[in-house]
Design a protein around this nucleic acid. Structure first.
Lengths: 200, 200
DNA sequence: TATAATAGTGAATAGCGATTCACTATTCTA
DNA sequence: TAGAATAGTGAATCGCTATTCACTATTATA
């Protein structure tokens, strides 16, 4: 049966979401045009009405990811009002993101992603850099506030912050249901605080 | 011209090393039988005299990686005699490993790896688990020694330790020559120590 | 409502990559 | 040194996947 004719804007969204689901379940390499089309409910060739190539779909997914990640950072700024609270908020949100879909880490870690066009590599660079520099900015503010030690290196500390999330992502992938994100967060956060906070 | 007839044991090694180089340069997905055969200097079909399938090559590579990683841990036990020194040694060795070849992280993070056979998934689980439990063991010893705080959770701390290395691996891949592993180590290690060491 | 624009279809193509196989050359060993 | 193993070769196959295209159905618009 023929699929209902649907506006490109909507189909584009559907396609990206379908692709995201597939990636979350089976990784970037398992992403195929046929698979995506099936999930959307159209025929593979119809997909080319909305995206001119598979590459373009991957680019679109990266844009989605950028939004999700940076939105968390903005939210932290709005909802929390000191450096440590903001960082904790971001950490919790990111771990939650992991639970919701494994797609994000699979994408950022996939060789398929940064071995494609060089345009895609720079897109990934940009996402990582803006994320890390947002973290650095929060850290610097904390240093000025006096809540964060003056002798840390913000850039490296931002990477350590990532270090609470990335390994969790890997373990979620590998140990599947046995790895407990909540207790990971509960154990790891105080240790991180200890290494950067000023002692009262 | 015909390749010299060479003993299987030697060829197996050559094949695994060639595969490793390709992975380090271009990722797991770029690994092809043709590519490996070319690098070894034989014809693709000849490869099947030594490995019955591509899967078997991937398995072989995992075994290599297990050795490399666990050797570092053993060396640490031999050469250093307290928990913190051992951990620092392992960290430095692993960062050095990253410089030598980007293959290891690309393998452990590749969806291609753990979306293959379930046998391979359990192999990866085993490597990760034995690595993490070796770290935990060192941490526990440190707690008994009195050099490491009694209120940390060894298992989570082991994951945080990984958190110094994994993000570095990603940044090496993404930012290529601009990311400085040495200064990363220099900045990150004292912060880690601060979060786990007993203050004198 | 006529018609232009838009979206969907199915068949065909093209290329790549893993694997098989019959055959040949080389090495080992009895 | 003869013959059995062993390793290498090139051609062929097979399946998978992205992409194209001519055609059709549907929607929007003038």
């Amino acid at each position: 049966m023929r699929a209902k004719k649907t506006n490109t804007e909507i189909r584009k969204e559907q396609i990206l979401l379908a692709a995201l689901k597939i990636i979350g379940l089976q990784g970037v390499n398992a992403l195929s045009i046929v698979g995506v089309a099936e999930k959307v409910g159209i025929v593979p060739s119809a997909l080319y009405r909305h995206f001119s190539s598979k590459e373009e779909i991957l680019d679109g997914i990266l844009d989605l990811m950028r939004e999700k990640v940076l939105k968390n950072v903005q939210q932290a700024r709005l909802k929390k009002h000191n450096a440590l609270a903001r960082l904790e908020f971001i950490m919790m949100r990111h771990l939650a993101l992991l639970k919701e879909s494994r797609a994000l880490p699979l994408i950022l870690l996939s060789d398929a992603m940064y071995l494609g066009t060089s345009a895609r590599l720079s897109k990934i660079q940009e996402i990582l850099e803006s994320y890390l520099s947002a973290l650095s900015a929060i850290l610097k503010e904390g240093m000025e506030e006096g809540s964060i030690r003056a002798d840390i290196v913000p850039e490296s500390t931002a990477i350590m912050f990532l270090g609470m999330i990335l390994p969790a992502a890997v373990l979620v992938n590998v140990q599947a249901p046995f790895f407990n994100l909540e207790s990971h967060a509960a154990n790891v956060w105080p240790a991180f605080v200890r290494s950067i906070a000023v002692i009262n």
